[in-house]
Simulated assay, not measured.
Amino acid sequence: MAADSSPDGLTLRPARLDDASSLAALSIEVWLSTYLRHGVNSLFADYVFSELTPARFQSLLQQKSETFIVSQNVEGIDGFIRISEGQSPPAGLGSAVEIATLYVQPRHHGRGLGQALLQAGLQCCADLAAPAPWLTTNSENTAAIGFYQRMGFEITGETAFCLGSQSYPNTLLTYCPKAR
């Protein structure tokens, strides 16, 4: 994918290895603001500092089964989508391609970045002969679930995000192009 710039200044491009620290910082910002509403405890802090690191993103960026597309503005990256190949959905429905992450900085919500990134990600999935990618999101994240449903995804099951001894319900959604 070449860089794609629109008249409103939105530029989508493939992520580069030198984007790893920006992807980590953006992920921490979005993850904390989305999922931690009542304070930070060591369980969540340890997860963030072990999973959302520049080194982890460098490793992912070097894997052929991972595709990252970023939204770039004049200051830097304000959103990204990550497509992971070889990931079977928990309920067995859909293709073996997961939309593993779609993050947009909260201050950039409402500008169409999420929609543009998702459309680019869906095109990537189609190019991989995977027209029915799947994703999961926290079941309490009703804004995200509504967004994905408006974009042609259907709820196809439930799963859980496990962290330590805690389990958090997640909604499984699968892209259904005919639903659009």
Rank of each mutant, 00 (worst) to 15 (best):
I81Q: 05
A45I: 10
A96D: 01
A25Q: 07
V97E: 07
L52Y: 04
I28C: 06
E51Q: 11
F80E: 10
G152M: 00
T142R: 11
N138Q: 15
T137Q: 04
L43V: 08
G121E: 15
F80T: 11
S42N: 10
S27E: 03
N141V: 08
E85Q: 09
F153N: 04
D19K: 01
G114V: 14
N141P: 11
A126C: 14
A143I: 10
L32W: 10
D127N: 15
A132D: 04
Y148W: 13
S50P: 01
Y47P: 07
C125R: 07
A24Y: 02
I77W: 01
D127K: 11
R37Q: 14
A20V: 02
A132G: 10
S84P: 00
R111A: 12
Q123C: 13
P54W: 04
M151H: 09
H108K: 09
G121I: 08
G92L: 03
I145F: 06
G76P: 04
R150C: 04
S22D: 11
I99Q: 08
E66P: 03
A144E: 12
S95M: 10
L61S: 01
L60S: 13
I83G: 04
A126H: 12
F49R: 06
D127S: 14
F57P: 01
P90N: 02
F49G: 03
F147D: 14
A45Q: 13
N73P: 08
H108L: 15
V48I: 08
G39W: 12
I69R: 02
I69M: 11
R56D: 00
L135V: 09
S71P: 05
S84F: 10
T142L: 15
F153D: 00
F153Q: 01
L26I: 05
G121C: 14
S139K: 12
A45V: 04
A45K: 11
F57K: 00
E85P: 00
L122N: 06
A130I: 03
S59C: 09
A45L: 14
R111G: 05
A25P: 05
F68A: 07
A20N: 05
L32G: 09
N41L: 03
F68D: 02
H38R: 15
L26R: 11
S50V: 04
P106H: 15
F147K: 14
V40H: 01
A120G: 12
Q87N: 03
A24I: 04
V97Y: 08
L32I: 12
Y103M: 07
L43G: 05
L26S: 06
E98V: 02
S22K: 11
Y47K: 10
T137L: 05
V70L: 02
I145T: 07
A132N: 08
S84D: 05
Q149L: 13
T101N: 10
L102K: 01
S21V: 07
G114K: 13
F147S: 13
D19I: 00
H38T: 08
S22A: 14
Q105L: 14
I99A: 08
Q62W: 08
A91D: 08
R37T: 10
D46W: 01
G152C: 00
E66H: 08
P90K: 02
R56H: 00
E98N: 02
I77K: 03
Q58Y: 02
S27V: 02
A129R: 07
L135A: 09
G110C: 06
